[in-house]
Design a protein around this nucleic acid. Structure first.
Lengths: 123, 123
DNA sequence: GCAATAGGGGATAAATTTATCCCTATGTGA
DNA sequence: TCACATAGGGATAAATTTATCCCCTATTGC
């Protein structure tokens, strides 16, 4: 596992939430788990742009941060289910606010994001 | 400037907001600008863990994404002021929600973040 | 002339995060 | 016997983000 060389910032609420939500797919993972997609394979199908490996890594971090729990069923083929903890559930309204803002402004956002991407590609 | 080699995900609201808010200090920059700390040197003082360079880079991205505007006064020594655009202002309630969650759970968050940092340092 | 001020930005290094590749395990069904 | 499904994880490479260093502008005050 990668070992951090610098210590995290823990000064304010924004630092703290950043520490647990930073990661390309974490928010989406919490969201889909809350929607009832609990198994790793389901999550992978829901987030096809991610690789299995990264999802595992990020799920592990969410678990370490006590936002989700992992239940392993001793069956073959393996079955695993993730669930939000009570703590994790308190994040859902916040994630909802993020998603709603993004949805509400999606056209404009696509526009400005692509505009910047294109102009930087032109040097 | 760094040129992206992969294209951004723009599927859903969460992708979109992620594209504009991702960056270690962006949320804080928006927040402090909204609080009236508009000059680069003020922002740097408010965010002492960041370097001048990164703040400039991230401010530029926020500007490209139309969340802030930059006003350069033609005086010496130079004076610059950033302000939120109307679009940027719509993000403030969302950022507020993030910060409030972080503040509300700060003890627990410090605890789980440090616990994970320590155990990974022990291999 | 020289330092201080306020703001910028290029080049490069270091840190961090994601992606790729490959290998493990165990039943089930063709 | 072989492929498939389901989940995991090590090693390493590539991508991306941050940090460091150093230099530039032009004026005011000493």
């Amino acid at each position: 596992m990668y070992e951090r060389k610098t210590s995290p910032n823990l000064n304010c609420g924004l630092d703290l939430i950043g520490e647990v939500l930073y990661g390309k797919w974490k928010i989406r993972l919490l969201w889909f788990i809350d929607q009832g997609h609990k198994r790793p394979s389901e999550l992978l199908r829901k987030i096809p742009d991610a690789t299995r490996r990264v999802l595992n890594v990020q799920l592990k971090e969410l678990e370490d941060h006590e936002l989700i729990t992992k239940k392993i069923y001793p069956v073959v083929p393996p079955k695993v289910e993730y669930s939000l903890t009570e703590f994790g559930k308190t994040l859902i309204p916040v994630i909802d606010a993020l998603g709603q803002w993004g949805d509400a402004h999606q056209d404009r956002l696509r526009d400005v994001i692509l505009k910047r991407a294109v102009s930087s590609a032109l040097d």
